[in-house]
């Protein structure tokens, strides 16, 4: 009884923080404020993880998300300069806000309606299909076991994914000046006849 009450109280408190932070992200015009609101959300989610007995994830959430990802975003904000000119009033694309509202309301509405329709058992799936959660084994060990058995293939693919991220960073960080100039700069609108002879040499 007692733990249930605590869980409920923590849930309500965190839910408020999470939603407040999320609203902040899309509300503030200053991206730095948005980023800090994001931290609040991520922190709230981390506490919710704890509430659901996912201790390891709670730690990782704080370390990776708030510690690395948000800091990275903040770095880039600082690098580019805080751009407050980002306007929330002008609608660049006719109807985009309406579409956005419809999509957002649709997803939330569908899931909430689904949850209310289901009733009884919220989840219909097979219980503990991959590996049952037990209290005897530390959370981190349980995750590790499944990570290196059932999901070992997925784990290997993330290696490729991270390699791509590194290559991407290298490519994108290259300054345009580092790109050698074209054999002959051709303006986009006029036919680049003079280029052709040189091009032939390059292609041969």
């Amino acid at each position: 009884m007692g733990t249930d009450t605590v869980e409920a109280v923590v849930f309500v408190a965190c839910a408020l923080i999470v939603l407040g932070g999320a609203f902040g992200v899309i509300w503030f015009r200053n991206p730095v404020q948005s980023a800090l609101s994001l931290v609040a959300t991520l922190f709230g989610v981390a506490v919710l993880f704890l509430n659901m007995n996912a201790q390891f994830l709670a730690a990782v959430q704080v370390i990776v998300y708030t510690g690395a990802i948000v800091v990275l975003i903040l770095f880039v904000i600082m690098l580019l300069g805080v751009d407050t000119a980002d306007d929330i009033d002008a609608e660049p694309l006719v109807g985009q806000r309406v579409i956005a509202l419809v999509i957002a309301a649709g997803v939330a509405g569908l899931v909430i309606a689904g949850v209310t329709i289901v009733g009884g058992d919220l989840v219909s799936g097979a219980r503990a299909a991959t590996a049952a959660i037990t209290d005897d084994v530390p959370n981190i060990e349980q995750i590790g076991r499944v990570l290196f058995t059932d999901y070992v293939y997925a784990l290997e693919i993330t290696a490729v994914l991270l390699t791509i991220a590194v290559v991407a960073a290298v490519v994108m960080a290259r300054k345009p000046t580092e790109v050698e100039p074209l054999p002959q700069e051709s303006s986009s609108m006029e036919p680049p006849e003079p280029v052709e002879p040189e091009a032939e040499e390059v292609f041969d």
């Binding site: 919220l122 989840v123 219909s124 799936g125 097979a126 219980r127 503990a128 299909a129 991959t130 059932d150």
Partner: peptide, 8 residues
């Protein structure tokens, strides 16, 4: 995952 209990 919630509906079937697995992603496999």
């Amino acid at each position: 995952y919630g509906g079937t209990g697995s992603t496999s």
